[in-house]
Design a protein around this nucleic acid. Structure first.
Length: 647
RNA sequence: GCUGACGUAGCUCAACGGUAGAGCGGCUGAUUUGUAAUCAGCAGGUUGAGGGUUCGAUUCCCUCCGUCAGCUCCA
């Protein structure tokens, strides 16, 4: 009666087994050791547990601990073990969701008081007892009525249950005394979870909605081997050393001062040099691409932002209004700008534009201020005083595709070709609170999508992630500990031209409405420099490094020769200084390496006499390169000119 | 903004009801050094701010400010 199904194994061979054979049975038929090592199985890309009867033919694979697809299964099961332990110690705890995430898992609990670090220790110890129990994970399919009965004491689970569409399978997983409404899959038994560690607890809104209750979320990580777990914990520690806040302090790049306020960056001389070089770089790049630089005021009458729609759509991110200026009517108020677009629009509007003039490309590296919520601030990566490398393009509709392509080319030139950064693209569509009609949004979203697809770029869809005035293509990157941030952005806008009644005169001698593109390449200098610090771990390429060469005379006898080399470097535009401190050479080399200076130029008696220099490149250890001073200067000057990624 | 943890010398950290300490860094002196820390001495703190409890508070309690992690929100 049972029909046969055909399973295609990874080696290409086929196996015919009766329908409803379990994955475990198939694994056993392949080999007992494979069955021993099996964690779960995969049928046509879907991960299933070993005891699940197979219902259809397809590509079949046994997942062992070596297979990366097995890790999410382990981690999801670890979340159940966590919940089991919490329920044992805190029987009154309500349960929310407990998924696997990158590198680990979490589980949300509804508890009368938040977990303390001591609670976490107790919970972790209890988890070890759950693991020792080696309870099998048992899957059961139940009716909606039965599920309601079983989760009667768990209001969060009941809420979730009611969202499962009629006709869908409702599955329940039980291990020991713990039962969860869950899709699975799971490892065979709790005993498979050996190398698990709880990391921290924090509040998290139920369903990610800040209007709803806050649950207590416990984060953990789980691995198949102790080595993997230790390696992961070491990786976290190493990442902490790359943190731009740590390096920024160690290399004296920037500070944030309580007297002045959170989210406001002090660029110290070395950090300011980074910003200076980046500004020069991007200004050259955009001037070569037909942009014109502008400068606009930092504060404007509030009326401008009412007209643009920033008030009220963006009001919660703006600083409150300032009083009227001397001589103004009393009801006039000023705002510090959170964006530059309305001001650039006014420059566009300051004269009549012909279709021949378009595209008009205006750019400004401008300071804007946004009233970001206090809990979101993060070093240089999320600040209240932002230095945007902003640009606004005013186009004829027929120029949209080309200009988006040019903007994407510029992004790639700066990020990938210059810095070697790999980035991801998101297409962010209309948000809930938005300006303008859906028809206009349809058009704008289609144009961005068309440009991405025309260029053959892969992208993710960020539903609802657009700006209030238009959809955008965002560039995303990760920080040292894997958090995702947005850098460059290209935004298409049909709304602001409408609100400001922008026009150009067409070939038909009639007025037409231009389209706008808002774009930033770095995003903001704050976030970009913060990211670069982590990307390079403070070891910036030569052209960007605040201090490019440090000249080290071995003894005072070489002081004059060292100063002479320094003068040659300076004359060639190279940022150098002489370390004249009364310390051993070893001490000064160590300091130079720790300060990430690209080249240490050691000047000893032999070199001074020969007009040479002993060059130690950053990170090259004690491998030194003795060369004529002129050759050294010329080589560096060329690397700087070409923005080579050295040393 | 919300939940929790944490704020001690320039930096990294000790001390946890009884006169606040170390290493690094800084300064001074000696040393003149050949590829990742030379030695010695000295200076440096109303323990984030304000209140309270106490004979006595860095330590316990409250409020505020800030930082960190997460959530939410965003370049």
């Amino acid at each position: 009666m049972a029909a046969d199904i055909r399973l295609t194994l990874p080696d290409g061979s086929e196996r015919t087994v009766p329908e409803r054979t379990t994955a475990r049975a198939v694994a056993e038929s392949i080999g007992p050791r494979l069955a021993q090592a099996a964690v779960a199985a995969k049928l046509d890309g879907d991960v299933v547990e070993l005891d699940r009867p197979l219902a259809r033919s397809g590509r079949f694979e046994v997942l062992t601990e070596k297979n990366p697809d097995a890790l999410p299964v382990l981690r999801h099961s670890s979340a159940h073990v966590l919940a089991t332990a919490v329920r044992r110690l805190f029987p009154e705890a309500g349960i929310g969701f407990g998924p696997s995430i990158d590198d680990g898992f979490y589980y949300d609990f509804q508890v009368p008081r938040p977990f303390t670090p001591e609670d976490l220790e107790r919970i972790e110890a209890e988890m070890q007892r759950v693991v020792a129990g080696d309870d099998p994970f048992v899957r059961e399919e139940v009716s909606r009525e039965e599920a309601r009965r079983r989760f009667a004491g768990d209001p969060l689970k009941l809420e979730r249950l009611e969202e499962i569409p009629e006709g869908d399978v409702i599955s329940v997983y039980r291990s020991g005394a713990f039962e969860d409404l869950c899709r699975g899959p799971h490892v065979p038994a709790t005993g498979r979870i050996k190398h698990v560690k709880l990391l921290h607890a924090a509040g998290a809104y139920w369903r990610g909605d800040e209007r709803r209750q806050m649950l207590q979320r416990i984060y953990g990580t789980a691995w198949f081997s102790k080595q993997d777990l230790d390696a992961y914990l070491l990786r976290l520690e190493e990442a902490r050393k790359r943190d731009h806040r740590v390096i920024g302090k160690a290399l004296d790049l920037f500070s944030i001062q309580e007297d002045v306020g959170p989210g406001l960056i002090f660029w110290h001389p070395k950090g300011a040099m980074l910003q200076h070089q980046l500004r020069r770089f991007v200004e050259d790049a955009i001037l070569a691409r037909g942009y014109e630089l502008v400068f606009t005021p930092h504060i404007t009458r509030e009326q401008l932002f009412i007209k643009s729609g920033h008030l009220p759509y963006y009001e919660e991110n703006q600083f409150p209004a300032m009083a009227a200026a001397a001589g103004d009517a009393e009801d006039v108020r000023y705002r510090v700008k959170p964006m530059n677009c309305p001001l650039h629009i006014l420059i566009y509007k300051s004269q009549q534009r012909s279709y021949r003039d378009l595209p008009v490309r205006l750019a400004e590296i401008a300071n804007v201020y946004r009233n970001e919520r206090s809990g979101t601030l993060h070093g240089m990566l999320r600040v209240r005083g932002l230095t945007m490398d902003d640009g606004h393009l005013f186009l004829r509709p027929d120029q949209i595709q080309d200009e988006i392509a040019l903007a994407l080319e510029l992004v790639d030139f700066v990020l990938a070709q210059t810095f070697g950064i790999t980035y991801r693209l998101d297409l962010a569509t209309r948000p809930a609170e938005k300006l303008g009609d859906d028809a206009v949004w349809d058009q704008a979203e289609a144009a961005l999508k068309g440009a991405l697809e025309h260029l053959g770029l892969t992208y993710r869809l960020d539903e609802g992630g657009g700006a209030f005035y238009g959809p955008k293509i965002d560039v995303k990157f990760d920080d040292a500990i894997g958090r995702e941030w947005q850098g460059a952005t290209i935004q298409l806008d049909f709304n602001l031209p409408e609100r400001f009644e922008l026009e150009y005169t067409g070939a038909d001698n009639k007025p037409h409405r231009p389209v706008m593109i808002h774009r930033a390449i770095f995003g903001t200098l704050e976030r970009f420099v913060g990211f670069l610090i982590e990307h390079f771990a403070g070891a910036f390429p030569l052209w960007l490094a605040p201090e490019q060469v440090r000249v080290l005379p071995i003894t005072d006898a070489q002081l004059e020769a060292a100063r002479a080399l320094h003068a040659k470097l300076r004359a060639a535009g190279i940022r150098s200084h002489v370390d004249e401190r009364n310390e051993t050479l070893n001490y000064r080399i160590r300091d130079g390496e720790m300060m990430k200076v690209p080249y240490l130029a050691v000047m000893g008696g032999r070199e001074a006499e020969a007009g040479a220099v002993a060059v130690r490149a950053r990170g090259a250890g004690n491998k030194q390169d003795v060369m004529p001073q002129d050759a050294f200067v010329a080589t560096l000057a060329e690397h700087i000119r070409s923005r080579a990624r050295v040393p």
